[in-house]
Computed example of a mutant assay.
Amino acid sequence: MKSVLARPAAAAATIVLALALAGCGEDTKKEFGLEANPPDAFQVGTEAPLSLPPELGQLQQPNPGEPRPQQVDAAQAGANIVSPQNAITPPPSSTTPGEQALLEQAGPAPQGDIRAQVNQNAMVASKPQGFVSQLVGSGPAPEPTVNAPAEQKRLQENQALGQPVTTGSTPQNSNEPPGLFQRFLNLF
Rank of each mutant, 00 (worst) to 15 (best):
L56V: 09
P38I: 03
V165L: 14
L180A: 14
P128N: 02
E99W: 01
S174E: 01
L155G: 06
T166K: 06
G168I: 02
D27T: 13
F32H: 10
Q43E: 09
A13N: 07
A18S: 14
P144I: 00
Q159R: 15
P110Q: 06
M123Q: 15
P92A: 10
C24G: 11
A41G: 13
A41W: 04
A75Q: 05
G107T: 02
N80P: 08
P67V: 03
P142V: 00
E176F: 00
P38F: 01
Q152T: 10
A122C: 14
P8N: 08
G137S: 05
P142Y: 00
Q156T: 06
A106M: 06
P49A: 07
N147E: 00
L135W: 05
A109E: 06
Q61R: 14
N63T: 15
N80C: 09
V124N: 07
I15S: 15
N119Y: 08
Q152I: 04
P110S: 05
L19S: 12
G107F: 00
A20M: 02
A148D: 07
G98L: 03
S83P: 09
N63C: 10
P84Y: 03
G78M: 13
G65L: 01
P108F: 01
F131M: 07
S169M: 11
Q70G: 14
P164R: 08
K30M: 02
A75E: 05
A75G: 14
F188E: 11
R154P: 07
E31Y: 11
S94W: 04
A109Y: 03
L59M: 09
L21A: 10
G162R: 03
S169G: 15
L5I: 12
P149E: 01
G45P: 13
S3T: 11
Q111H: 08
G130D: 07
Q134W: 04
F181I: 08
P84S: 07
A122E: 14
Q117A: 10
A13C: 05
N173V: 02
Q120F: 04
T14C: 04
S138Q: 10
G25E: 03
P92C: 02
A10R: 11
T96L: 05
F188L: 11
L19A: 15
N173A: 01
E35D: 09
L59S: 13
Q61W: 08
N158M: 04
A150I: 01
K2F: 12
R154G: 05
G23L: 01
Q105R: 14
E151G: 09
M1A: 09
